[in-house]
Design a protein around this nucleic acid. Structure first.
Lengths: 247, 247
DNA sequence: CGTCACTTTGAAAGCTTTCAATAGGAGTGG
DNA sequence: CCACTCCTATTGAAAGCTTTCAAAGTGACG
């Protein structure tokens, strides 16, 4: 999904590791050689307020990052997918909790190491910057969604975003629960459910399992999502095609 | 207000220009010597979709940055105050429109110049990064607000945010219209109005003019805002106290 | 001092939430 | 391997908050 977590940075997954083809290193390369750790669904990597000492590279699985209000209301800021980097921030404490949705494999390095390596590399610096910009861009999409879209528009926007993120296949996976979706979209679980049912009845989607949905009539779906998305999408540069400073 | 515009970066306003006290240069220093331009309220600096060729330093006045959906719905992503930098982005087109709320004074330099100067300066690089992180952090606050707060909580959160931004005085200025506030808070103009009236009747605020409000009973107000804010606030490092890479 | 734009207020409508109950699936244990 | 249990998802009905539609009020400006 959107990587709008302040600290979840999407990298280019479309190409083989940079050094194999003689290109500049990528942010992911910083984690090379670090042994992977495993978390089961529901486990947290870190909690909101923890000292932010490390940065994580997600290899497998999906995470949710969220903040909770004193009265228990939860807002999910984003879902983190393989290929995202988690925990990048200038604050010295994590601003949200990161929790495994599914079983997850991650690698970690210290913040100090991460930043000094990035700082010393003219190739990595623009990458880090570009990723933060993509984050901000996704965050703004989400603000538009939360501030101005109806429940149906939100759900459809979400489904399309997942589709984009995961290879643009007709059938998509929704590893998160309805509650996760609800807390991400700023609605209730019942509203998510009702909306999905309604979309099904109209033949726009077809649920092939609790966590699996096929998207039909993409044109109609995009229409519903607000149309706004695609344009934005087209504009956004392909992720990290060339990570050089803008001019 | 929050600088959650992907591209509005808050700098340190608490100290005199760096070079005057022998410190490292700040991002604002990059604009030194550039003549200021003036815009009247309502004028746009750039439009969503324009080629992003320049970066702006705001000297005076307030701007709104927003995106509009095909059917006309508008979402204001943030308000830009003096001391913010506007237009920083890795995308090659602006992702939103920037428009003067009040009369405004800005300075501009080219993106290429901005980035090459920042890239060459070990002092500026962490500043740029830190500012993007602050942006993301503010964007997440806003996502929480839009996704999980009631109308009253939103309005009060907004008033408190303005207060923080503008010196923490009891009486604050709201240069923007009710419609601007509404489009920023994800509600309607009527809801903003009714909420303000209700707060007044309860003695929590006192409108001393259309664009001027005194805040009473800050404790109660903070309680209403979600309480969440302050904690977050305390955590966030004072802006740019020392712009060095995290370790 | 009149006009126009913005703001406030009122009443009804609507969408989403809340409360409640049923249904469905996954995992466990016999 | 099937039955049981528990958790998640779906569905229904009523309540509630916000929006929509309308009209009156207020203030800035020429």
């Amino acid at each position: 999904m959107y990587n709008q977590a302040a600290l979840s940075l999407a990298r280019n997954m479309a190409y083989p590791p940079a050094d194999l083809i003689g290109e500049a290193p990528t942010l992911t390369d910083l984690f090379k050689g670090v042994p992977a750790e495993t978390l089961s669904g529901g486990e947290a990597i870190f909690w909101e307020g923890d000292e932010a000492r490390q940065i994580f590279d997600v290899l497998e699985g999906v995470l949710r990052i969220y903040r909770i209000m004193p009265d228990g209301r939860r807002a999910i800021m984003g879902f983190i997918y393989p290929g995202d980097v988690l925990g990048v921030s200038f604050q010295d404490r994590y601003l949200f909790t990161a929790e495994a949705v599914t079983d997850v494999k991650v690698r970690r390095i210290s913040r100090g190491r991460f930043f000094s390596l990035v700082n010393e590399s003219p190739a990595l610096r623009p990458q880090l910057f570009a990723l933060l910009c993509d984050e901000m861009s996704a965050a703004q999409d989400q603000m538009l969604l939360l501030g101005r879209k109806s429940a149906e528009e939100r759900v459809v926007s979400f489904l399309l975003a997942v589709q984009r993120k995961c290879g643009a296949h007709k059938e998509i996976e929704l590893p998160m629960s309805r509650l996760d979706m609800a807390d991400y979209l700023g609605v209730t679980i019942e509203t998510v459910s009702r909306t999905m049912t309604s979309l099904s009845r109209r033949g726009l989607i077809h649920a092939t399992g609790r966590h699996r949905v096929a998207l039909h009539k993409l044109n109609t779906l995009r229409e519903i999502a607000g149309r706004d998305e695609e344009e934005a999408d087209a504009q956004r540069a392909p992720p990290m095609r060339r990570a050089v400073w803008p001019n």
